[in-house]
Each structure stands twice: as C-alpha cells, then as structure tokens.
Design a protein around this nucleic acid. Sequence first.
DNA 1: AATGAATGTCCATAATATGGACAAATAAGG
DNA 2: CCTTATTTGTCCATATTATGGACATTCATT
Lengths: 255, 255
Amino acid sequence: MKAPVQGTQSFSRTIHLLDLISQSKAPPSLAELKESSGLTRPTLYRLLASLEAEGLIEQRSDQRYQLGVRLVSLARKALAENDIRRLAKEQLLRLRDETGETVHLAVPSREELIYIDKIECEEVVRMASTIGTRVPMHSSGVGKAYLGAMAPAEAEDLIRQLDMAQITSFTNTDRTVLSAITQKVREDGYVFDNQENEEGVVCYGAAILDDMGKPAAAISVSIPLYRHTKPTEQYVKPLLTCIANISQRLGYRPS
Amino acid sequence: MKAPVQGTQSFSRTIHLLDLISQSKAPPSLAELKESSGLTRPTLYRLLASLEAEGLIEQRSDQRYQLGVRLVSLARKALAENDIRRLAKEQLLRLRDETGETVHLAVPSREELIYIDKIECEEVVRMASTIGTRVPMHSSGVGKAYLGAMAPAEAEDLIRQLDMAQITSFTNTDRTVLSAITQKVREDGYVFDNQENEEGVVCYGAAILDDMGKPAAAISVSIPLYRHTKPTEQYVKPLLTCIANISQRLGYRPS
DNA sequence: AATGAATGTCCATAATATGGACAAATAAGG
DNA sequence: CCTTATTTGTCCATATTATGGACATTCATT
C-alpha cells in the first residue's frame, strides 16, 4: 500500500482498516476484514490489536468488531469545536422554518464533503444518522455549490481528481459537464440539483465563504420531488440570505 | 515510547498526538505540540502530515491544528445510536468504586427521566429502580439535577407542566419550592435528595452537559439512609469529577 | 543588511513492521 | 473417540519503515 505521506505507511493502513469497520453494514468478523482489507493475518491481528488498545474499536462478545467509545468521544469533540457548525445553527433553523424543508450543512474533507449538521423538516429527537455521511462533490447540491465557490483553477484541479461515480440514474458522470455546471454556479451563486445524489429528492445548494472569500462549507435545502411545487425564488431567496448571514459571521466581507 | 501492542509504535504515537490535540483547550500550534508531545521536529511533522492526509486533523488558517471532520465520518454509525450510555459506562463504574454506592444514569423523556443504566454497589441493597424505569423530575436526584442544568426559563416552563405527585412522605409537591431548589442546584452544580423518591434512600445528583452546554442526562449516587455517614464531600467530589469527564466526552467545553 | 528565531526538509541509520511459517484451538468426519 | 480439516492465533528473521541529527529555508527583529 502506498502511503500518502512518506514514513506513515502503518498509520495509513490502520486508519484504512478502521474505515472498513466503520463502513461495514454490520460489525465485521476477522475473516470478513481479512477479505476486505487484503491484509495478511498477522498484520491484521496487530492492527486490530492496536486499534483496540487505543479504544478506537471494541471486540464484541461474538468476536466481531465495532466502533469504540474513544472514537465517538473524538468525533463529538470534533463536532463541538467546529466553528462553522456553531455559527450556522441558528441560521439553518431559520432556513428550515422559512422553506419548511430539510437543511444540510457539509464541510470539505479531502475530495469529498461530510455532513456535519442536518435540520429535519419535522422535529426529531435523536441525532440524525446522516451526520458524518460522506457526500460526493459531483453528485450533490452541496458539492457543486462548493466547487462553484472555489477559485476556477482549483476547482478544475479538484474535478480532475474526482471519481465521477454514478450514484443515481440522474447523476452526471462527465467532467466537462461538471465544469460547465461549476461555471454556472459561479455566476448564479447557487445550484439546483435534480436527483443526482438521491432518487426522488431535488435540492438547492449554496456555499458559505470564510474571511478570505474561500468556500468553507456548503448548505442545501432538500425537497422530495412530489412536494417541489413552489417557484425557485421561494427556495433560493432564503437560501442566499442564509449563506450571506453565516459567511458574514465567519468574517467574510463582500467586496 | 512503549507501544501497548508489539509492532504498532508509530500508530500509537500518532493517536497519542491526536489525543493531545483533542485535549487542548484551544487549537494548538506546532510549537505547543512539540512541547507537549516531546516529539522531535521531523517526527512531529510526519505524524501531523499523516493525520492531516487522513483528514483526522485540519490546519486552520492561523496554522493551528484542530480535529478534522473525518472523525465524524468514521464514527457516524456509533454517533447515531444512543451513545451516552457507552460513553458514561467507564466513568460510572469508577464513581461506584470511589463511593461504594449504587450509581444511576438517566436521560430525559418528555416531562420525566428514564434510567438507562444502573451500576450496583457491592452489598446487595433493595432499591426499586431498574433500567427502563421512569422517574419524576420533581422527586428524584437526577430530576432536580437535570432541572438545575436547564436554562432558567425552560426549567420554569417544565416545572409548570409537572404533576408534582406525592411519591413518598418526604416528597416536595410545591412548585415554588421546586423552583427554589432548582435555583440552588444551578449555583451548587449538584443536588442532595432526602428520600423524596424512595423511603430510606438518599442520593446526590448532578447533570451531564452536551456540546451546546445543555443537559443531556443526569446521574445520581444513591445511599441507604442507615449507611449515609460519610461527609458530603466524599460523595460530591467524585460525582462532580464524573460528570465533568462524561460531559467532556460528549463534546462539552467548559468556558 | 545582518542577526536571530522559527519553520521546514533530507537521508543514513536504528528500529520497526512485515508476513511466511508454525502452533493451538475448534469443527467436521469416520 | 480418534483423525483430519479448518479456523484462529503467535513467533521471529528479514526487509522495510520510521526516526531524529544535521542542514536549509523562511520570517521577524535590530
């Protein structure tokens, strides 16, 4: 396995293994992990043992592995110390109330975005399962909004690195088309996504800018297709007001 | 540095570094990390680079490091579940050991609380409570602790909705008195309950705070009256340490 | 412009992680 | 109940990796 950074192969491998456990549908057994990771038995044992020693995973009574409390604790801290999430909360609630639809907040991590908040259109008590979900740049409203707020050259670089996977039957998988969309987003300041990330759901997305005018996050208003009847204006206007407010709180000053 | 598991020194070191970052009051600079970790400059750079490459940390515009959202993605599955119980378990066991008494963990459900965990003390003592039992706000240690951690206005709203039922001959059924108790809890950070929920059992209660500083749960240390001989300090100090630890794991940062 | 401090990188070497081979435990078959 | 097959777990010589002293670069200060 290649290490993205020189001198960290074992760390990279171990985190990759943690990711496999995290992405599994059900808590995996040793044999399943051996299969999916392609690691040799002794290596797998050592990596699992070190993950367990650090409390990042736990071995259940049936020998299968699940995420450990240490990881949960770290993740909660990561959420808590995220300034954008804190500064955006109030505005997102308002956007939800104004549109009556579900609102997402996503921040970049490597070549993807990760949802760090979700305000449901109906009140829900427990933490939404979408928080922490990775979402591709090319197939989501937040992704395309984010691309459109990047410096053109950087956006092109990033687009070149994307896998352009087909998520739904509506997903655009053509880089040239994505570049054109990105250009349009740059002009409009928002994007409309037609079921490219989830069948039956359309959304409007826009990016939040930091004090340097660079995109720091993106938000989207998701609407079930059957309910998508209001004029565009009714979704876009509150959305643009919302991102303007949050960007301002982040220190952005429109020039 | 010794590695807890053979053949994982570098992983262990890197996670330890991640932990240092997570425990810092404010996002640390490179110099601060060099100081606190004791690592040499090149090693520190490599470990930070690999953490950043994996998205586990992020370098802010002021060069300081903070936890990355990839952690949220890795912990997604575990975050969605009700994880307070898991996060608290270890700390509750410690509290039981330190006080030698039975410890309860309760979360809110409408205008009541529900016990979601109970750590029994060594000596078998008959106590009515079991996991899943509902417990009133006004007559229990956990309930009054929870009220005292709420925003004053919200607490008053909630008190107005309570039925103030007489549970034992000691139960206070006066809302005005409950308001006064709530105010005291707010100042003290804990509450003492004298048999208001169960005859012959007194308890000390305190609330667990989430990342927004709002109460997420409450814990209590219950003591049979005949054995309640130690000074208050001996119960309260471990209790307060315990809630501080759990709150911190939930993402709460004392300001 | 000169000096000092902080930040960043290189690379020979020491130390670690690796995985083939072996052992133990468990399940299947006679 | 014993033998064989399969799965689970461990050891350790070796190759590969991570390490940190030394050096280079950048930035701040005089």
